[in-house]
């Protein structure tokens, strides 16, 4: 019934719309598309969907989540960056958003998109990645893992969310610091990468805590270390790489919301307000807690600063890692 009324109201609004000056004041007047550049089941998707649901309450329009996966997220990010800046396309992306243009530079190719094509709306979460292996794997600790990897270089395979994706960057930073060589098997996102680990097709995975928390609790996976600067609340027994003596191995997989640059100011404001309301929404907070990915909210100005600093740090790390496949 509510739907019918809504439809009627929209219909009525629509009939009146032509008689009003162009771009009527009522943003949004039709569904908004949220691009998630990874398949369902990864960090971006797990953060994007609940926040979309919470934002719908404020915006009074459906937010349609679209997973457009591929190339470490570059496919979907490029789609969002070049979308019409009318406020009806938003993007939920991960830290890798800053890496991909840098990687394109590294290979001397035309970048899929540039960072100045996107305007930040808000930071939603920031979690350190966790190194996980199957619970029947021989390694009980990160030390075992490194020793074994040194003994047989280029045999242990790890899955990632794509070349220069977040999960690849994290692992590459660790491998460079520990001076080990691993086999890299890229997938289209964290979800398929996790499936590959569970299916024994790869032996290790750096993952955001959200997607693997349930599997760790169920005893299918074993965490060896985390990339944070302090231990994770959910896994207090798991040491950080910094504790283990790898000083520079620090990596966060953060999820932020963006819009194409040039989105009209009223629309940006409405989106920021809706996000601010959404992160306080009890349903949303509860969902994120269940996912072991506590909300870390920053509004646009603050987030922009955080993003700039993070991008600079990742660019430096990328140069150190260099060209890899």
């Amino acid at each position: 019934m509510r739907h019918r009324l809504q439809a009627l109201a929209t219909c009525a609004a629509f009939l009146l719309l032509p008689w009003l000056p162009a771009l009527a004041q009522t943003y949004p007047d039709h569904p908004i598309q949220m691009i998630v550049p990874f398949p369902p089941g990864g960090v971006a998707d797990l953060a994007g969907r609940p926040v979309a649901a919470a934002m719908e309450k404020t915006l009074k329009q459906p937010i349609v989540v679209q997973n457009r996966a591929g190339a470490g997220g570059a496919v979907g990010m490029a789609a969002a960056a070049s979308a019409k800046p009318d406020g009806y396309t938003i993007l939920v992306a991960l830290s890798s958003i800053s890496i991909i243009p840098e990687a394109d530079k590294l290979f001397d190719r035309k970048p899929a998109y540039t960072l100045d094509q996107l305007a930040p709306i808000a930071l939603l979460s920031a979690d350190p990645t966790v190194l996980v292996v199957k619970s029947d794997a021989p390694w009980k600790s990160a030390k075992d893992f490194v020793e074994d990897a040194k003994k047989r270089p280029d045999t242990i395979a790890f899955a990632s969310s794509g070349v220069y994706g977040t999960l690849h960057m994290a692992m590459a930073m660790f491998a460079a610091a520990a001076d080990i060589k691993l086999r890299h098997v890229p997938f289209t996102g964290g979800g398929p990468a996790l499936t590959a680990l569970l299916g024994n097709n790869v032996q290790a995975l750096a993952s955001g805590p959200g997607p693997v928390a349930a599997q760790i609790k169920a005893g299918a996976l074993r965490p060896l270390a985390t990339w944070g600067n302090k231990r994770l609340e959910a896994f207090p027994d798991v040491p950080t790489f910094i504790e283990l003596g790898y000083k520079d191995v620090e990596f966060y997989i953060w999820a932020g919301m963006f819009a194409p640059k040039g989105t009209p100011e009223p629309a940006m404001k409405a989106l920021r307000d809706a996000t601010r309301a959404a992160v306080k929404d009890p349903d949303f907070v509860e969902t994120m807690k269940k996912l072991e990915s506590p909300v870390t909210y920053m509004d646009a100005p603050e987030f922009q600063k955080f993003w700039d600093a993070d991008a600079a740090r990742l660019a430096k790390a990328l140069v150190k890692i260099g060209r890899v496949q």
């Binding site: 591929g70 190339a71 470490g72 570059a74 496919v75 490029a78 789609a79 070049s82 991909i100 990687a103 394109d104 290979f107 190719r109 035309k110 899929a112 794509g162 070349v163 220069y164 890229p186 289209t188 496949q325």
Partner: peptide, 16 residues
Amino acid sequence: GIDLLSGFHRFTYGVT
């Protein structure tokens, strides 16, 4: 489209 593995654009000729 963008190669899923390497991130190279293939046969896109600048059409996003």
